[in-house]
Design a protein around this nucleic acid. Sequence first.
DNA 1: GAAAGTACTTTCCAAAAAGAAAGTGCTTTC
DNA 2: GAAAGCACTTTCTTTTTGGAAAGTACTTTC
Lengths: 128, 128
Amino acid sequence: MSKKVIIHEKSDLCKGRLRSVHDTLDLLSGKWKISIISSLSFNGKRRFMELQRDVEGIGAKMLSKELKELEINELVIRTVYDTKPVTVEYALTSYGKTLQSVIHEMSKWGAQHRKRIVKQAHDKSKAA
Amino acid sequence: MSKKVIIHEKSDLCKGRLRSVHDTLDLLSGKWKISIISSLSFNGKRRFMELQRDVEGIGAKMLSKELKELEINELVIRTVYDTKPVTVEYALTSYGKTLQSVIHEMSKWGAQHRKRIVKQAHDKSKAA
DNA sequence: GAAAGTACTTTCCAAAAAGAAAGTGCTTTC
DNA sequence: GAAAGCACTTTCTTTTTGGAAAGTACTTTC
């Protein structure tokens, strides 16, 4: 159950930073993780089906796989309630919330990049 | 030549942030981009073969593909010198350098995450 | 008692990504 | 003139990823 914690191996001094960036990147990559984290961060606790409805387009298999990976990395906790039938709730851990600074930086850069690309496209169409 | 600028479509208000994060993530994803950026950031200008030696394991096809994507997104400039045979140099653009804040956040988080995971593994082996 | 809902897992398949190897065209070095 | 270096591209094969559909098991509602 613990092999999905991807950690990159390299020896050099300067390569430590590279490895760290890759570790973070791998944790967030895949089409769905950011959307899942975002829903959890916005809504607090969420059940499987709720998440599936939040994250449009995701199938049960993918959702279950992504949640497992997030759980292994301790970003998300899964709580099972002994009701009939069982209720399962997912939530960000407080550790998961520490990712928010990273996500915020990415969001800021991404927003500004989009503006740049759109402006560029606009300028090009003018030139023609 | 300009279709590789990946921009996600979604309508909602809150989804704008999601889209921005995905834009950034897509730009940096793939096994090699971060390593290429890192070599360029450390060494300044670099030629194709130098990069291939810097980034261990990368093949010519991948290197050329990744460089093209970075170029399209204006993170890297490619300069051809009219020597015989031609000399080609790659370098980060000043815009490319603006990514450094994002990369730095990822690096910080990744380093601390690794510590956490290693400590956890250590604690577990003790308990056994 | 049939349908629908929750929480998944399993199987099967198609598409995409990645790597290995060879090829191109030109030049300098031995 | 053979070999090797630069900067790639092309082709072919393998691996990985992702999705659709069905299945499991249990329960509440009509």
